[in-house]
Design a protein around this nucleic acid. Structure first.
Length: 494
RNA sequence: GCCCUUGUAGCUCAAUUGGCAGAGCAGCGGACUCUUAAUCCGAAGGUUGAAGGUUCGAUUCCUUCCGGGGGCACCA
């Protein structure tokens, strides 16, 4: 990519557009005007100005004075009069600048502003003859000189790479990007409020962990110099949160970043936002109900208007039946990997490297390849096999299965939950099984966590726990097809 | 890592079969007192991602590299 920013020590000829802006900056200073003042008190959001004058008739004048501030978006010159558009976070307002009101000097200075400059305006509200709510400018204050041109005023910033690498330009130029991240904030605040109101305590557990766990994924590693030891960036908060339930906090949640050292895709970013909650004296049915109600509340809060129906209850289907329906294979009738591979092939399906896969890997693949992509409406897949669920409690009535579900929508997993395994001896056996899977070549099998097992030995109440992918939830709520669209600064190659 | 695709002015996009690289916006100079993608006149703005090759001639064809997008692999 060509780049006009250059690097330290390298002389780069300045683009004429930048030189022009620099020249205006110098002129402001020469005229004794601070192009970067320290504050601008008393600003009213444009949205409030609009709301206060919603019913004004075309041509109507008012005596309402406001001070607004924002970024100059467009200018339409009229000689002795000019119209300008000013953007703030809450909207856009037209400014009318008249030479007969402002006088020669102020008018000239205003016309010398560049698109993209941050300016403060004092003025009076009126409705233009064409019915555009406007502010008649009485005073102009430069709040920050912009030294680089903004994106195209009409087309915005379209280049996907620049939109992600230079998100500030995306936000300046594209109103829908601003709206999307406002929606994201609304999703998160709604989730928090739901849990807070339900008596959950928000906690923070380590991101740098001596041992990773709580999910099937490869971790990032990093190094602490003073301690001279490696740490893992967490792949999940699960094990720490359950230790807090052991400690008696009863209802806890954490909302924060997890990190997984995996490929990127439309639904995977190496760092992503995860919510996990744990509720003492509850089981996975309770977790399902809470998930439905929280996601539904989120959809209401953000004014969701898409094709997905988040109203509870969601469709429920059992894991074993879902695979059987999609592939014709009864996984429980083939408890060994090789055996199952034969059955899958006999049913006319093929998976990459199928003969080398362990039973859990194979089962996992069957779900993600044949079932998940077809789960469009919110669906809860119930009762996962023990072998792929090392932290879920055995099903109270179905042998070989656990009380675990995953929720899907728009062909994506959004949540994973279980009645938590709280029998320390069983947990120890599950870890040992994971170690065997690891030795059999599964790079994502769980490492053995003795501290966690000892915490369970202390006694953990019956507990329902759930993890919800916040980025994916935002994708659903905004109808977005790529996780990169809902993460402000997605991972990019250098 | 593999496959497909893509990269042209600050931004948004053109460029026929390989034949002088163009437009709109923004910017610059000028006109204009209700415009709103304002309009009109004028002048400017380019190492076509980088390097190499084929050719009289390359934005166009070939190779390699870099970045983006999509897919596969990987990945709940």
């Amino acid at each position: 990519m060509s780049d006009d920013t250059g690097t330290a020590g390298e002389a780069v000829p300045e683009h004429e557009l930048l030189a022009v802006r620099r020249g205006k900056l110098d002129r402001l200073r020469a005229d004794g005007i601070d192009p970067f003042p320290h504050a601008f008190p008393g600003v009213t959001p444009i949205g409030e100005v609009r709301a206060a004058h919603a019913g004004l008739e075309a041509g109507a004048e008012t005596e309402a004075r406001y001070r607004i501030a924002g970024r100059l978006h467009a200018r339409r010159g009229q000689g002795k009069m000019a119209f300008l558009d000013l953007d703030d976070r809450s909207g856009r307002l037209q400014l009318q600048a008249r030479r007969d009101v402002l006088g020669e000097e102020v008018m000239d200075r205003l016309l010398d502003l560049d698109l993209g400059d941050l300016v403060g305006i004092d003025g009076v509200v009126f409705m233009s003859r064409r019915g555009e709510l406007s502010l008649r400018v009485e005073a102009v204050t430069v709040l920050a000189k912009s030294l680089r041109p903004p994106p195209d005023k009409h087309h915005g910033l379209q280049d996907v790479e620049q939109r992600f690498r230079r998100r500030e330009l995306d936000l300046i130029g594209n109103a829908d990007t601003r709206a999307l991240f406002m929606t994201r904030a609304k999703v998160i605040s709604t989730v928090r409020r739901q849990l807070d109101d339900a008596g959950f305590v928000e906690v923070e557990t380590p991101i740098l962990q001596p041992l990773y766990g709580g999910a099937m994924a490869r971790p990032f590693t990093t190094h602490h110099n003073a301690l001279d030891r490696d740490f893992y960036l967490r792949i999940a908060t699960e094990l720490y949160l359950k230790r807090l339930v052991v400690g008696g906090l009863e209802r806890v949640y954490e909302l924060g970043k997890d990190f997984r050292n995996e490929g990127v895709s439309f639904k995977h970013n190496p760092e992503f936002t995860m919510l996990e909650w744990y509720e003492a004296y509850a089981d996975y049915e309770d977790a399902a109900g809470r998930l439905e109600s929280i996601v539904h509340a989120v959809s209401v809060a953000v004014g969701y208007e898409g094709d997905l129906d988040f109203g509870p209850p969601w469709r429920r289907v059992s894991f074993v039946e879902a695979i059987q329906e999609a592939t014709g294979v009864d996984i429980m009738a083939h408890p060994e990997g090789a055996d199952l591979a034969v059955a899958v092939r006999a049913a006319g399906h093929e998976l990459k490297g199928m003969d080398e896969l362990t039973w859990p890997q194979l089962v996992d693949d069957l779900l993600s390849k044949f079932v998940e992509p077809n789960l469009e409406q919110p669906t809860i897949v119930m009762d996962y096999p023990v072998a792929i669920s090392p932290f879920a409690k055995a099903h109270r009535s179905k042998p070989g299965l656990t009380e675990r579900f995953e929720a899907f929508a728009a062909g994506m997993e959004i949540a994973n939950a279980f009645t938590e395994l709280n029998d320390p001896d069983v947990q120890r056996e599950r870890f040992e099984a994971q170690v065997r899977f690891s030795e059999a070549g599964d790079e994502e099998a769980q490492p053995y966590d003795e501290v966690f097992v000892q915490a369970l030995e202390q006694g953990m109440p019956p507990t329902g726990g759930l993890g919800l992918g916040i980025d994916r939830l935002v994708m659903l709520m905004t109808g977005t097809r790529s996780i990169r669209e809902v993460v402000l600064f997605p991972a990019m190659r250098d």
